[in-house]
Amino acid sequence: MSKQVILVTGALTGIGRAAALGFAKAGSTVVISGRHEEAGHALVAELRETGADAAFIHADVRREEEIANLVDRVVERFGRLDAAVNNAGTAGRPGPVTEQSAESYAATFDTNVLGTLLSMKHELRVMQAQRAGSIVNISSTYGHGGAAGASVYAASKHAVEGLTKSAALEAAASGVRVNAVAPGPTDTGMLDRFTGNPERRAGLVWGLPLRRVGNPDEVANAIVFLASDRSSFTTGQILSVDGGKSAA
C-alpha cells in the first residue's frame, strides 16, 4: 500500500481520525477533509510526524461543489486518487419515530446519504478514468437491522449499504471496488452522544458477545484492509466490525 493517495472525509474525530492515522503509518499519502480548519491542520501535523505526506482540505459533504473541488484538488496536487473513505456522518436526533420531523430526517440523510452519494460520484469520476481505485463507505450494524430509538439513523445506514452495493456493481468493470465497513458500538464521541448516559452505554456493552465496545483503531484496521490490494477480489461487501453483535 506504500505511497497510495488516500482521501478520508469526516477525518477529524473518531473512526475517521483513526483511519487517517492507520493509512499514514502504512506509508500512504493522506488527504483529510472536514469542516473545522484548526482541527484539520492539527491532525495534518500529527500525520506528518509519522513520516507521511498529508494535507487538509476543507469540505462539507452536503455541498456538491465542495466535494467536486475536494477531489479535483487531491488529483491536482498528487496526480491520482487510489482510495477514499467516506466517513462523514451524523447520529442525527435520537428518539422514536413519533418524535422525528422532516427537519430531523433531512439533517441526517443530507450528511449520511447525500454526502456519501456525492462523494462517490466524484471519487468514481476519477477512479473509473484511472481504471483503478477502492472506496470504503462507513455504515453501521444498524444499517442491516432495526434500531429502536435511532430509526432515522438506521434508515440512513440502510441507504448507505444499498448505495455501496449498487455502486460496486456499476464500477466493477472499470476495476474500481466499493465496499463498506459496519462498526458496532465503538468508543467515540458519537457513541457518547447517542447513549446519553453510562447506564445506556452499559446496556449496549452487555448485549455484545465480546462484552466491550470497539476501539476506533480496530475499525480502522478493517478500513485500511479494504482499501488495500490485499482485498483485491472483494467488492460490494459490508464488513461488520462489531464484537459479534451481528452474529448473536
Rank of each mutant, 00 (worst) to 15 (best):
G203R: 01
Q237H: 06
V71K: 10
G244V: 07
A88Q: 10
G22D: 04
D72Q: 13
P94G: 04
N179E: 13
D82P: 08
A154P: 01
T195Q: 04
A107T: 04
T116Y: 10
L210C: 01
H158C: 06
D72W: 06
S140G: 12
V126F: 05
A106G: 03
A84R: 04
V181S: 07
E99C: 02
V8I: 15
A18C: 13
A59V: 08
G34N: 03
S151R: 07
A52N: 02
S246N: 02
S240Y: 04
R200C: 00
T9C: 08
G143E: 13
L7A: 03
V136N: 14
E161N: 15
G244D: 00
V30M: 00
A154Y: 05
V160R: 01
G203L: 04
A11G: 10
A247V: 06
G236R: 04
I15K: 06
D242P: 04
T235G: 05
R73E: 14
S2Y: 13
A227Y: 06
R201E: 11
S246H: 05
F78W: 13
E199F: 07
L117N: 09
A54M: 10
M190I: 12
G14S: 12
E76M: 08
A247P: 00
G203Q: 10
G79E: 06
D110I: 07
H144N: 14
V97P: 00
A248W: 03
N69Q: 11
I15Q: 06
T141I: 15
R62M: 02
